[in-house]
Design a protein around this nucleic acid. Structure first.
Lengths: 349, 349
DNA sequence: CACCCGCCAGACAACGTTTTCAACTGCCGG
DNA sequence: CCGGCAGTTGAAAACGTTGTCTGGCGGGTG
């Protein structure tokens, strides 16, 4: 059963030249047919198509890209923090959907927030001639991408804006979402609200922290620095950090968790401590199963598909010749009430 | 602030020829330096490197691939069902980690289980000269990939084996995992165990269903066809299907959910019906937050990172010349007890 | 001092394609 | 009947790189 395993060694594809020989026409004619067949007599075109079929010819986009005037490779590079984070998976899908409509493919890599790795990826993509680059940048200075842009690569930033570089970007309303979340908790009566988030060197974390602070200030609440925590390694440390925070002398009555993996850790901790019905909680970014928890997890949901699609469209418009000022798109977040964020304060505060 | 937005129009990169001119050497010398600098006098190499730096020269891998003898593009294509499914996100990451060690990049696309789309992707990747292809195939006949392999593309299947084609593959122990899950429920005393899974045309679903049946048979239990359900559109329909199943006249006392998104829907349903402490449940594939549920969700966990890494290694070994028989790697699953799978039967049979 | 050999630099031909340009065909109008 | 024109075709020159081959140079040896 099945086709025999064939040694890879031959590893040659038929070329246009061979197709031409079989069809009894010139190389140029084959090229014309393959590229749409304008200005080729019907019968000849037919002969060429037959030869293509017969030989199993496959257009070589590498050679084509090299020679063509526009130099387009019909591919865009994506640099994420981690492709296995469901948030970026969804952003990726948004990009892919838009790209597919244009017949473009995506090259994807994870930077793990390491500047060196991010630069390596950008270089590797650019070396392969991507037409566009969509970056969730983790470096303090993104101006190194200026060189790629000067070389003709269309650039768009997603999730985080560029620094020291004026380029198109699409981000969630991090600060606004955080304000909404915290205001929601305050409205439920909370006065002591804990913050769990990434180190503030990360743009998104800084913005969410800013939103948290602004909301406290707006409502006349003083910030207690002891309530703000940054677990070192998210998934791993969020659990412990949360336990620590909650077992302090004057613990918060509500929690705002500012990142999906951190939220997951915090939720685990709260449930492990049996506090899920006493401690209010709102998470930034929606997670699978959030609505199956007891109580359901109230979240400020981002729209990663839209983030991705929009980033792709920004890139495409540049490829199509748009040459105006850079655009900064902000995608709104949405508060989804599921129970955990509506719990009234109990005990402390 | 920041660098001025520069029109993309010029869009030209310096070439080796220009570097050669600046360095005052020949094109060949530049090529030698760029490719490691063997057999070039130190001072000349230095001059070349300076010129590279000065001009901001970036190696053009497109041209290089075209000309080089080995024809390697240092990239591999990944075809998944959906990149936004966290399972595939993790597989992707496994592949990427292995690829990075080799300086290779990943091209990724989602087939949405549509055979046409899968073929399109394979063709597009192959047209771009990927060295390898890792496919989670959804088509009934994967022999169409034979042509790519004959052209020298190294092939590996992941998550699902190839059909009508003898090629390397790495899959989870779907049937074994399912048997374990069901045996676990039976050991807890259950006799009526519901099955929720994808349509059995999908290999993984068929295997998990097979495991379910085998386990029932092994324990002398008859299969009740009414307990086996296939929600049409997973995430969306799993909720309703579960409600239906549980509100039937003779409902099951335990549930085995055979796919991550279906599990999520089923969990939601069970919790919505308030049955989470009465109905036992085991899910195939681990999900974020599964341990924060009440009770925690017992799962048969796959190891997607290992699946991805192994698939990549299978591809690499072919690229390195391995030409032996095809290899079929099975990655074991692991039962993780968290509470939901250990509930004793209550109420019904 | 002649010769040979090793080392290294440069010229040049590929790689598979697109694009330009010249050449050929048949047809029409003058 | 000839010139020109539209419609097609083919030859050949790119694209940016690598690999092969030739040649020059210097040093060691007979």
């Amino acid at each position: 059963m099945g086709v025999e395993a064939m040694p890879r060694l031959p590893g040659r594809r038929p070329t246009m030249r061979e197709v031409a020989a079989v069809a009894g026409v010139s190389l140029s004619t084959v090229s014309r047919v393959v590229n749409g067949g304008e200005g080729v007599r019907g019968d000849l075109a037919e002969r060429v198509r037959d030869a293509v079929e017969l030989l199993g010819y496959r257009h070589n986009l590498t050679a084509s890209t090299l020679r063509r005037a526009d130099r387009q490779s019909a591919s865009i590079g994506l640099i994420f923090e981690d492709v296995s984070n469901p948030f970026f998976g969804a952003v990726h899908r948004g990009v892919e959907d838009a790209a597919r409509e244009r017949g473009m493919l995506t090259l994807v890599g994870s930077s793990d927030e390491q500047p060196d790795r991010e630069r390596e990826l950008a270089e590797a993509f650019s070396s392969r001639g991507v037409d566009g680059l969509i970056v969730a940048s983790a470096v303090a200075d993104s101006s190194y991408l200026q060189r790629e842009r000067a070389a003709g690569v269309a650039l768009a930033f997603v999730d985080r804006p560029p620094t020291f570089l004026d380029a198109d970007a699409v981000v969630s309303d991090h600060a606004g979402g955080a304000r909404t979340a915290v205001a929601h908790l305050i409205a439920a009566g909370h006065r002591r609200i804990g913050f769990l988030g990434d180190r503030p060197e990360v743009f998104t974390a800084a913005e969410r922290l800013r939103g948290y602070r602004e909301s406290l200030a707006q409502h006349g609440l003083a910030e207690d620095l002891d309530l703000v925590r940054h677990p070192r390694f998210r998934g791993v440390d969020a659990y412990e950090t949360t336990c620590e925070l909650l077992s302090g002398s004057n613990p918060p009555t509500a929690l705002f968790a500012g990142q999906n993996l951190i939220s997951a850790g915090a939720v685990r901790a709260v449930h492990a401590l049996g506090l899920q019905h006493e401690l209010a909680m709102v998470s930034f970014d929606d997670i699978l199963l959030a609505d199956a928890l007891d109580p359901g997890l109230t979240v400020v949901a981002q729209d990663p598909l839209t983030l991705g699609r929009t980033a792709a469209e920004l890139v495409f418009s540049r490829l199509d010749g748009y040459d105006g000022p850079t655009r900064h798109v902000v995608v709104p977040t949405q508060l989804i009430e599921r129970g955990s964020g509506e719990l009234p304060p109990r005990g402390g505060g």
